[in-house]
Design a binder for these strands. Structure first.
Lengths: 334, 334
DNA sequence: GTTCCGGGATACATCGTTGCAGAAGATGGC
DNA sequence: GCCATCTTCTGCAACGATGTATCCCGGAAC
């Protein structure tokens, strides 16, 4: 059996509660007593039982992170950073993959997963604000990403629209006029896809370039679908001189498809993405993209969530945080 | 306050323990009683308190996964699959990043992290078998990867040596004679790097091609280091007609470096990797690599760990599982 | 010398489950 | 008609910590 607080108390010749007090930095303890307890702890190799502590205190020191798929590079990098930011503050992150399915998202919101965590970082992809609101319960919840832009919720996000406009403007600036968009999500307007598409349109407008719906290719956000979308455009006979992948893996999939068809990047078609995953720098040609300030997103979303948990930041309206971004110009669209 | 078993008991007109029995599928309960309890549960929206259950039962239904860095594509994909495999069996996975640092690995082995989990999937990179053995405690532990090949531990791994020999043989078969190896880890012999290097040497021997230590470039397993290692070789004036990256990101970093220097892949230098991450298929040129049967690794390591936890597989010797592999021939080394 | 105050420690109940032991009623064998 | 066995259900203790209330004691105040 593991050594408990009781064992420590006995060894130190104090009461169980005094041991607890030492561990919780209770103010009024004689230094000598404190020392004796700490010696006993060291000698017995005592470790607090987190489960018992959780039961009693109602806190788990774990944060939940709900995302569609951890194997997507953007989410993998984000998760890694979130875990590090949380660890620095004494929290652990429990990840749940939703596969972008509504049922999984709802489960994460209500089920045992929620119970295990003190607060949630949530990237809803399938369900809407009302669904979230009606089942969110009262533990703190911070939205990550953009599918839900709602005053009821805290949200940490990036400047999707502005950044997408900046990439588009860059492509236009290098003389491209027919810029295909890969990764649109028909019918959706508030999500990342919608916002980035808005940015694209805004940049076109500002440059006085007409918008052509034929250039917009829907696709899930993966490499293979990005490749397939470009293939589809080509086969339909749509002509374009640039591709804007709404995220990097789409852009990379698209670029791959162009290259195997003998289309030169960037000479024939320029390619740009969004996310600046590590892979973008090392692709051939390297990928022009938007660096969305992921460090800032990770830091600030953890900070905000912990503020909510501790009650430092008291509710009322949802807080909206937007991280800055940088355009990274590389070979695929100089 | 959340609804507890006691509330359910009262609502159903039975004792608290009967509710517990219903939840735990106790055999001897009258169907009518069971129904009443289940109705009460549904009506009140009762959810079992996992923390309390853990405290009482000593099980957490969580598995620990220790790896160096979740943002590395291989680990991200593996973690994703492990989580899915675990979820199917009613377990959750808690991930801990070690950054390949010994202190972090030791903490994961003993500290609170261990307490929170019923068993551990462990990829030790910095510490050795004895260090693990002396602090492993008695909860089940399954090694993942190869740094520790020790009869005391269970191990799920891939055929590193054989597979590396197969890639090397493939490169030799296409006429390459000076195959640089990127990602070696000097002094280490039992780890993945060492085993893969062994495979490389074995294939050379079998083909009667002399081994040239100048071709072996040490590097950490990242894209940037892979690129730097190739740059180093070139600058030292080492000549080579192929590069074997000990994993895919190394190979991709290396390939990037070659291409920006105007060296044609595969015409001038062929490139091959190891892991078959999704990115390999979509690189330009696409990357020849080893598919290590990650699905099998994920499935079998979860299965083995759960067998150990349940006691179905009783200890004694460590079990060693080797997943199969496939050579994926693509453009970078046809 | 009694009262008051606050530092320093303690006892007890409690968080929400599950394990163990046992009670009560039904069933069956002889 | 009685003991043995099985089914069904119950009560109590326990898991290991923390919150609340309380107690004791030395010194200050009157």
């Amino acid at each position: 059996m593991a050594v408990t607080m009781n064992d420590v108390a006995r060894a130190a010749g104090v009461s169980l509660k005094t041991v607890s007090n030492v561990l919780n930095d209770y103010e009024f303890i004689r230094p000598a007593t404190k020392q004796r307890v700490q010696d006993a702890i060291a000698e017995l190799g005592y470790e607090a039982n987190l489960t018992a502590r959780s039961l009693r205190s109602g806190k788990t020191s774990m944060l939940g992170l709900v995302l569609s798929d951890l194997s997507a590079p953007y989410y993998a990098e984000l998760a890694s950073k979130l875990m590090k930011a949380a660890a620095q503050r004494g929290y652990r992150v429990l990840v749940e993959q939703s596969d972008a399915e509504g049922s999984a998202e709802l489960n994460a919101l209500q089920g045992p997963f929620r119970q295990l965590t003190d607060g949630l970082l949530f990237t809803p992809l399938a369900i809407d604000a009302d669904a979230v609101a009606s089942r969110a319960g009262k533990k703190p919840l911070v939205m990550l990403g953009e599918h839900i832009l709602d005053p009821r919720f805290d949200l940490v996000t990036m400047k999707n629209e502005e950044a997408a406009a900046a990439v588009t403007a860059h492509l236009l600036g290098s003389g491209r006029r027919r810029i295909a968009v890969v990764g649109a999500s028909p019918g959706e307007s508030a999500g990342s896809a919608g916002l980035r598409l808005n940015g694209y349109r805004r940049a076109l407008e500002e440059a006085g370039v007409p918008f052509d719906p034929a250039l917009i290719a829907p696709a899930e956000w993966r490499r293979d679908t990005g490749a397939a979308a470009v293939a589809g455009l080509i086969e339909k006979g749509v002509r374009f001189d640039a591709v804007f992948g709404l995220n990097d893996v789409l852009a990379l999939g698209a670029m791959h498809q162009l290259l195997i068809r003998g289309i030169k990047v960037p000479q024939d078609v320029a390619v740009a993405g969004f996310d600046d995953i590590d892979e973008a720098r090392f692709a051939s040609p390297s990928l022009t993209t938007i660096s969305p300030g992921m460090d800032e997103i990770a830091e600030r979303s953890i900070a905000l969530l912990l503020d909510r948990i501790s009650g430092r930041e008291s509710a009322g309206q949802g807080l909206h945080v937007e991280a800055g971004f940088k355009l990274k110009v590389r070979e695929s669209a100089p």
